[in-house]
């Protein structure tokens, strides 16, 4: 299985990500779609700016998918597409799509991949508020 992994500054084509994991061997396709929310901790957010260290982000994403395959050997296909640059409210920031023979593993593997992505993949998020900006999670 060769996962579809990409970091793009263009709007994410969710249908294309779903199509990338389609396979006749899978009875379940599970997708997580992360979108830009209008507030963070009660503070209104106007838009988000994502920055990526692309080569490392793709390397680490590859490791995350490899870990998922170890945990769920029945994983048939995986696609992860992450947006970078400036995103407006409602824009799709990330899509994780997985295909497995049955549904239980598809939920678990999809959650594992998005959760682990958030911990290790070298992408940074700057929230823009009415009165300034802040790098998310930078400070304790």
């Amino acid at each position: 299985m060769t996962p579809t992994l990409s970091i793009t500054d263009q709007p994410i084509d969710v249908a294309a990500a779903l199509a990338a994991v389609q396979t006749d061997a899978a009875g379940a396709v599970n997708a997580f779609i992360g979108t830009v929310r209008n507030q963070s901790g009660g503070r209104p957010v106007r838009r988000l700016h994502y920055e990526s260290y692309d080569s490392m982000a793709l390397t680490q994403l590859g490791h995350v998918v490899a870990q998922a395959v170890e945990k769920w050997p029945m994983l048939q296909e995986v696609a992860v597409v992450h947006r970078k640059g400036t995103l407006e409210l409602g824009d799709v920031a990330v899509v994780v799509a997985v295909a497995t023979p049955h549904r239980a593993e598809s939920f678990a593997a999809c959650q594992f991949i998005i959760d682990t992505l958030k911990q290790v993949v070298t992408i940074w998020k700057r929230e823009e508020y009415e009165d300034g900006t802040e790098w998310v999670a930078a400070h304790p």
Binding site: S52, A57, Q119, W124, W135, A137
Partner: peptide, 9 residues
């Protein structure tokens, strides 16, 4: 590279 706290997703 220096890697500050990541915040993808």
């Amino acid at each position: 590279a220096l890697i500050p706290p990541v915040a993808g997703g």
